[in-house]
Amino acid sequence: MKKIIFKFILLPALLLAGFPAQAALRVFSCEPEWASLAEELGGDKLDIFSATHAQQDVHYIQARPSLIARLRRADLMICTGADLEIGWLPVLLRQAANPTVQPGLPGFFEASAFAKLLEVPDSVDRAQGDVHPFGNPHIQLDPRNIAKIAAALALRLQSLDPDNADFYRQRYADFDRRWQEKTKQWTERAKPLAGMGLIVYHRSWVYLVDWLSLREVGALEPKPGIPPSAGHLASILQRIESQDVALTVRSVYQSSRATEWIARRSDVPAVVLPHTVGATAGADDLFGLFDSLVDILLEHRR
């Protein structure tokens, strides 16, 4: 009998007591880069869930039951915003019945609100493809944006969880110091990349291009969201002949067929660049993401 009591009552109780203190905030992140940033700033005070991973195109996510369930109890939702998640975020918010993470409230953190968006169109027309009226939403590929967003997120964590405000402040100070240092290193190392010509698959690299003064020569998608066509690829080949292009670049979730088609018909190699944390072997966290971005680009410099 004693044995049974120990096994079924005491042991579970001991195990529960032995667990580290429960996380203070449940964080629902729309993209892996913000989950990684939250991890940097909040450590084990946060229970972080990433709604998407690097293998997925975040434009085309469905409001799956698992996402609804996870959002239900979230204290903080971190998303890129700027309509990147327009197809699924509004549905999730309406189905998750969670009043604390609705837009406009402290529980809803929209990263793009803290970065300067590039390519804000003067007018929008779907004949231009799946354009974003608020500007290009792929803001995570400029470390200067990450720095600004980190500062804002750190303040948000402090206000949502005042008991641990000092902890978050400290984590942020430490992160920011390391981030500024690394940003300086990346920028320095990447100096020779200025002017390097890229053909991109989807126009999701504009912040990287802007930061490192690269040159985007063309996109394999004729219009954003429309898959490459044979005719368009032929026109890209012509462009490669007349302009200096070092690389064609795609994200890991995009088909390799178009980039390889180009590679076979020209001397321009096809490369997968990490677009977020977890996309390639080196990009295990935000630091690794930019390390490998700079490494891969330097490797193909010419």
């Binding site: 698992s66 609804i68 369930a69 996870r70 109890r73 998750a96 019945a97």
Partner: peptide, 12 residues
């Protein structure tokens, strides 16, 4: 009236 259970598994 809908109720979403506070679980990691979706239950409505």
């Amino acid at each position: 009236l809908r109720w979403l259970a506070p679980l990691d598994r979706f239950l409505e």
